[in-house]
């Protein structure tokens, strides 16, 4: 009869900034392309739906050894994932990841930002990180570290106006992300400082 394929090993999840990926080691069969299928199980399925598993269609019969599970890990509960290898009609046993995964453990990196001095205007450009993210921007006049101001924004499609600067003065900015769904924040980005245009003309 058909001998069983070995199950994929090293099934694990990498999660950064609320993007979650399942990876596993390939199953090697000389001269053949082994494919894989992935299923997930949330706490609801374990406790209220007889431990049922739900297939992820984008990762069914895939030749890849990675699966983007972000869409399905959409609640702050403990999830389990499993993978099996498939070659023609041959199937491996399911390999279930060790332990559980809850998105509250995702690693949050500081936001990428660029600070712009546009004449007397202090602006910041933030990189879009997805709808789950809020940005907390701190800014202050250099030397006046005790007078830090803050702006919280979800707005990333355009430049964010922070302040109008005093002529020739230097202003510094840093930012962190906040994810409401898991109630956590990243660490702060490195501080960036810019100088407002000097004003040679005198208003009479």
């Amino acid at each position: 009869g058909d001998d069983l394929l070995p199950a994929p090993q090293s099934v694990s999840i990498f999660s950064t900034n609320m993007k979650h990926f399942l990876t596993w080691s390939p199953v090697i069969v000389q001269g053949a392309t082994v494919r894989y299928s992935v299923e997930f199980q949330g706490e609801y399925e374990r406790e209220h739906a007889n431990g049922s598993w739900i297939p992820i269609s984008e990762c069914s019969f895939t030749a890849a050894t990675v699966c983007n599970i972000t869409e399905d890990i959409s609640a702050s509960v403990a999830y389990k994932m499993r993978v099996r290898a498939e070659l023609g009609s041959r199937r491996s046993p399911w390999q279930t990841m060790k332990g559980y995964f809850n998105r509250i453990t995702t690693s949050l990196t500081p936001p990428l930002l660029s600070v712009i001095a546009d004449g007397y205007h202090l602006l910041v450009e933030l990189t879009d990180m997805g709808p789950a993210f809020q940005f907390r921007v701190l800014y202050w006049k250099k030397g006046k570290e005790s007078m830090v101001q803050q702006k919280v924004t979800n707005e990333v499609s355009s430049v964010v106006h922070l302040d109008t600067m005093e002529s020739g003065a230097e202003y510094c900015v840093k930012a962190q992300t906040h994810v409401e769904a898991i109630n956590r924040s990243s660490s702060f980005s490195p501080t960036q400082c810019v100088r407002a245009q000097g004003d040679s003309s005198v208003w009479l």
């Binding site: 949330g42 609801y44 399925e45 399905d72 959409s74 609640a75 509960v77 999830y79």
Partner: peptide
């Protein structure tokens, strides 16, 4: 499943 786990 997504809704159910969020409700849970």
């Amino acid at each position: 499943s997504s809704i159910a786990n969020s409700f849970l």
